[in-house]
Design a protein around this nucleic acid. Structure first.
Length: 107
DNA sequence: CCTGTGACCGGTA
DNA sequence: ATACCGGCCACAG
């Protein structure tokens, strides 16, 4: 079956939610999807962020997975880049586990 | 149209 | 605590 939703609209909502994540805090892919009103679309959130141009101003680095870690292989360029961006914002992490979550944060 | 692929997630062993 | 599994769903080939 083809998509049963308006993907272009969902894409914009996702970008809006990600853009509104406060500096120094993070959200999971599933959390972003749920905040959009589309629970279960975590994978889609990832696919959207993947296509972002390198020149984007969207804080994509504030989105991690539900296990509290960066969803890139440790040591990969993307992982190093995301970690440094988060570290620069003062995100607290121990052994790669991000502790400053976004739970309780409202739109 | 059918199949494989993810920057995912929650439950189970 | 870690490892695996099945479900998830748009998208590319």
């Amino acid at each position: 079956m083809s998509s049963c939703i308006d993907t272009s609209e969902l894409k914009q909502i996702i970008m809006q939610i990600v853009a509104s994540i406060p500096q120094g805090k993070v959200a999971s892919y599933g959390q972003v999807a749920k905040l959009c009103g589309y629970s279960g679309y975590g994978r889609y959130v990832g696919s959207i962020l993947k296509r972002l141009p390198s020149s984007t101003t969207l804080p994509w680095h504030r989105v991690i997975n539900a296990r509290g870690v960066i969803s890139f292989p440790i040591g990969s360029e993307a992982h190093i880049k995301q970690l440094s961006l988060l570290f620069k914002e003062g995100v607290d992490s121990e052994n790669g586990k991000i502790s400053m979550r976004i739970y309780g944060w409202s739109i």
